[in-house]
């Protein structure tokens, strides 16, 4: 017999969500009790729907309704440009700019021995094969500007050292619209290192 109340069980389930602590989980669970049953069912259906219909693209690691995903499948995308990102969230951020017309490779994380993440845990194995296909001319590393993201980028650049492609990294510098005087010194010196001729 499970002595836990259904509310406790739901709270425990919600507690698994990122950014939701035990207290918030309980608040959400109690709040749901005030919803219409239909509303709750709709949310539950949406969750199951996502789980059953959204697939991970076997080419790039993006998420979508099809495999290959809509980006990999799009003949108008420039296949000579391949951007490596850590997460699908970062891919979506780049997509929102509508500036990048190439294709992606989503790693699904960053190297972090402290969290037990090693190269096998990342979507890396297929990357050399994609490049060996011959279409890719430039690999753009767009990993997070953190210690772990930098290590991942460094690892990738070693991995791709022998490949006949140009490996570049996106620039680090000042956020647009920000106050230069308020920028931290590391960002400022990175921005200075990455200066370019006008």
């Amino acid at each position: 017999m499970n002595s836990e109340s259904p509310i406790d069980r739901l709270a425990k389930g919600l507690n698994r969500l990122p950014g939701v602590g035990p207290k918030s989980a309980r608040r959400i669970a109690l709040d749901m009790l005030t919803w219409d049953t239909e509303e709750v069912r709709r949310l539950a259906d949406l969750m199951v729907d996502v789980k059953t219909n959204v697939k991970s693209c076997t080419v790039c690691g993006n998420l979508g309704l099809t495999d290959p995903c809509s980006i990999c499948d799009d003949s108008r995308r420039d296949r000579t440009l391949l951007m490596v990102v850590d997460t699908v969230a970062n891919l979506l951020a780049v997509e929102r700019t509508a500036h990048f017309r190439g294709v992606y490779h989503v790693l699904g994380g960053r190297l972090s021995p402290l969290e037990g993440v090693s190269p096998e845990d990342l979507n890396l194995a297929s990357l050399p094969d994609r490049i060996a296909g011959g279409e890719v001319q430039e690999v753009i590393l767009a990993n997070e500007p953190t210690v772990e993201g930098d290590a991942t980028a460094q690892y990738l650049s070693q991995l791709l050292a022998g490949a006949p492609v140009e490996v570049t990294q996106i620039a680090r510098g000042l956020p647009v619209g920000s106050d230069l005087a308020l920028a931290d010194q590391v960002t400022l010196s990175r921005a200075l290192e990455g200066r370019r001729q006008l």
Partner: peptide, 10 residues
């Protein structure tokens, strides 16, 4: 040791 190299330069 390529994983180690990835951390060394930083």
């Amino acid at each position: 040791s390529s994983q180690l190299d990835a951390w060394d330069s930083q």
